[in-house]
């Protein structure tokens, strides 16, 4: 194995204000542990905890769940544990002075990534009213047979975040890309 400069690695984590990160199979057990760790870390980073902060923590956790479950379902790389298949990906949570940024990334087919990017861009262009209309349409839309994918996770995240999605596509080969998606949450929301 290559030598890992742990000090350098830690410096990078600190420079980027990363308070939580995970790379690997996004099993449900991992997700639950990440929620616990995130909650503890945000609380530890906050001297006093007004009600509004409790509210922010719940919102961050809700976004973490949606991002993680997108990886579970949509990552091109899947791993089986028993009968359950979970996707592989990476999640990073950063805490700035005024906001949190949650970023997830996973491999996808280029064709699907292009569709997802177009959808994110469409959501970025909508105001609150437009998002609500789309959300209600998505709630009523028939699910594909035995599918969990209501397609409403992204709308839900966009409604919780005051800012737009940032996304990026990096080509891995002709067909496969790495798709990353960032969601911002203001601390005062």
């Amino acid at each position: 194995m290559h030598h890992l400069d742990l000090y350098q690695f830690r410096q990078e984590i600190r420079e980027h204000s990363i308070i939580l990160s995970f790379e690997g199979t996004m099993s449900q057990g991992v997700l639950t542990a990440l929620i616990d760790a995130l909650r503890e870390k945000v609380i530890a980073n906050t001297t006093d905890l007004p009600n509004s902060m409790q509210y922010t923590i719940r919102k961050i956790c809700a976004i973490l769940v949606e991002l993680a479950q997108n990886i579970q379902t949509h990552s091109l790389e899947q791993a089986f544990q028993g009968n359950t298949s979970s996707g592989l990906g990476i999640i990073v949570v950063r805490e700035g002075k005024t906001s949190f940024t949650l970023t997830s990334g996973n491999n996808m087919l280029k064709t699907n990534a292009d569709k997802l990017a177009a959808y994110c861009s469409q959501l970025n262009d909508l105001d609150e009213v437009g998002l609500k209309v789309l959300y209600k349409e998505a709630l009523r839309k028939e699910r594909a047979n035995h599918s969990n994918d209501g397609g409403i996770g992204l709308i839900d995240m966009k409604r919780k975040s005051a800012q737009g999605f940032a996304y990026d596509i990096q080509a891995i080969d002709d067909k496969v890309v790495f798709f990353s998606l960032s969601v911002n949450l203001d601390k005062t929301v």
């Binding site: 809700a62 769940v65 998505a138 709630l139 994918d149 209501g150 409403i152 996770g153 709308i155 839900d156």
Partner: peptide
């Protein structure tokens, strides 16, 4: 006290 998006969709189907 908390529903993720897909649980919300399933709950809506019950109510519907």
């Amino acid at each position: 006290s908390y529903l993720n998006s897909s649980s919300t969709k399933f709950l809506f189907e019950l109510i519907d």
